[in-house]
Structures are given as structure tokens and as C-alpha cells.
Computed example of a mutant assay.
Amino acid sequence: MTKVRLGYVAMSMELKNSSPSQTMTYTQFQTIPNREAAIRKLERIALSNLENCFRLLKHNLAHDIRFFRLSSKLIPLATHDDLSDWNYIKPLLSILNEIGTFIIEKKMRIDFHPDHYVLLNSPKSDILKNSLQTLQYHADILKSLHIDLQHRCVLHVGGSYKNKESALDRFIRNWGHIEEDIRKMIMLENDDKSFHLQDTLYLCEKLAIPFVFDYHHHLANNENEDWEKEWERVVNTWSHSPLPVKMHISSPKSEKQFRHHSDYIDIDMLMKFLNTIVGSVDTIDCMIEAKQKDHALFRLMEQLEERSEVEIIDGASFHIK
């Protein structure tokens, strides 16, 4: 028997006017003649994002959802070079502390998935510098929430740069120069175009990084690897983590747009995966990456109630027998 906990990404389709990703571009920032007034406006936007984030977490708890990906856009322009003197945490510390206390008391698992421009294997020093700056921003938020940094940021391996072997080696070289706090945060995910299961496993095993297996990505990008034979290796990458194994589940939009995410989850696709791994772990956290966000989770739970091999625990978790 394996316990499965479902989560979803950043935004709710049910909770209205709750975006945690409201933003301001640097061009807009520059149109405000008084720099201090512009920064105060940034802080108001960030406060609104965090208040909405708190609303989302409360909404999730009401539906038994204790696994959630926070938006990386909570504090706009936080990593912009021209705002390096802005202490963006200080004016938001009260709401951050409140959110963090709620997460810890309610035993929620939260994490981030920084944007695709975070490339730890980039050959360009400026891109690597900006990537580390972005990861430091995520670390600052986690620290202000009083959440342990360990395994809270999912990344892709990065770019292949027309030579995948060199790109993998460069990831390893760059890893050695990254501060411990940042390395501690990282989980790696196989992607749908470049770095498949074996590539990602190679790095995860060599560098002691947990592997977040994306089943949809594997179906889109593989070299006839039998993921079932490698599952034990995936699980073992989590042996040093305080958190349960995590995976991503999404479904193809169509045969023609196979890599694109569908609005909802194909339950047969999910159950094929879960019935294969049942008993291999006590608990697995499945992050739903679907356009319909929490609606996709609610619909999936309704469908799961009809499956004989499923034992429902609550509104967002179940056992596979």
C-alpha cells in the first residue's frame, strides 16, 4: 500500500481575485519619477501577492490539500540589478512570518519551480550569476518563512548547448562553486526535450540530488529507457531527504501537441504509473501540472473514488492498495 498526496501549482481556478503573481515591469517602475514612491508601490504589489498566497493556502487546507507550489513571482523585481539596495524582505516580514507559521503548524509541504532561465549549466558567467541570484531570492523567502531549505526548488538540468555530454559535465563543475544553502534547496527534474531519465539520474546520483520524476516528460523524451527498471534508483535519490518522494503528473493536450499540458489529468495514465510503483514507497507526493489547477485536482479525486484499488483518505490524498 502507498499513500498518495496530490498538490497543484501556484494559482486557483476556484478562488477568485487571488493571483499571487501580480507584477510590475522595470519599464513601469522607471515611469514613476520618485524612486522611493516606486519602491513603495512594488512593496504594495508584493504584499497583495503574499496576502493572496495566504488565501490560497487557507483554501487548500479547507480541501485537505497540504502540498502546494508557491509562485516564484511573489515579489516583483526582487532580483533586478538596479534594485540591489532594496531590502525586499523587511517590509514584508510580518506577513511572511504569518504564512510560515501557518505552513508549519498545518504540516504543509511547499516548494518552488523557478523559471526556465535559471540555468546552472550555462557556459556564460552572467547567466550563471543571474541564476544564482534568483535562487538566493527563493532561499531568502524560505528563510523568512522559517521553512527548512532542504529540497524546496525544482530545476531542470538546463540547456544542452548542442553538446549534452559537455553540458552535463559543466553542471557538475558549476555545482562545486555553488554555496551550500543553494545546493541544499535543489531537486532535479527530467525534461521533455533534452535531458531524459538517464541523464538526470546520472547527475542526481553523482551529486546527491533528489530526482523529481516527470512521467509525462519521460513519455515525451526518452531513449527507450524502461523507467520501471530505474524506479528504485529514483527512489534512492531521496534516501537522504526529510521529505517524501515527489513526482510530477500532467497529461498531453493532444497527440499532435503531446508536450503541452492538458486542462485535466488523464486518470488512466496516472493509475498506470501508480499501480506500477505501489508498495515501493510509503508515501509519494504528486504535483499536478494541469491548466485547470485545483479544479483538475478536485475532478481527479472524484474519478478516483470510483476505482476499486483506491482508498480515499481525505479531499486530496488516498491509498493505492
Rank of each mutant, 00 (worst) to 15 (best):
A10L: 02
R307S: 08
D192T: 08
S21M: 07
Q292M: 10
D115E: 11
A10R: 12
H261A: 01
H177N: 15
F68S: 00
S144T: 10
Q303V: 02
S131M: 13
H138S: 03
P76R: 06
L201G: 04
T79G: 00
Y26T: 02
I312Y: 06
K58P: 04
F54V: 05
Y202W: 14
F29V: 03
S317A: 04
E179P: 10
K293I: 00
A37P: 10
V118Y: 01
L300Q: 01
S160I: 07
E165L: 14
N174M: 04
I288V: 07
P123F: 05
S251Q: 05
Y161P: 07
E36V: 11
Q28M: 12
E180K: 14
A38H: 11
P123C: 08
A290D: 05
T25Q: 02
N34M: 13
K106D: 04
N163R: 04
D148I: 07
H59Y: 14
K3H: 10
F258E: 05
S72T: 10
W227K: 11
Q22Y: 14
S280M: 09
I39S: 09
F318H: 00
H218G: 02
P20R: 03
S21I: 05
L201Y: 04
L93C: 07
C53V: 09
R183D: 10
D82K: 15
L119K: 14
R183I: 09
R170D: 11
Y202V: 10
N221W: 03
D214Q: 06
M301V: 00
T101Y: 08
A208R: 15
L93W: 09
L83P: 02
M185Q: 06
V278P: 02
I147K: 01
Y26H: 09
L219A: 04
K90Y: 12
A37C: 12
F273I: 10
V310E: 08
T31A: 13
M11P: 00
G158Q: 06
Q22K: 15
F213Y: 08
Y264F: 13
S250K: 06
G176F: 14
L149M: 02
D199H: 12
D314I: 01
S125K: 13
D282T: 11
K73M: 15
H177S: 15
S166Y: 14
K184L: 10
D314N: 09
F195D: 00
K293F: 03
H261M: 05
V4E: 01
L61W: 11
E225P: 01
L6E: 01
I99W: 07
L207S: 09
C286P: 00
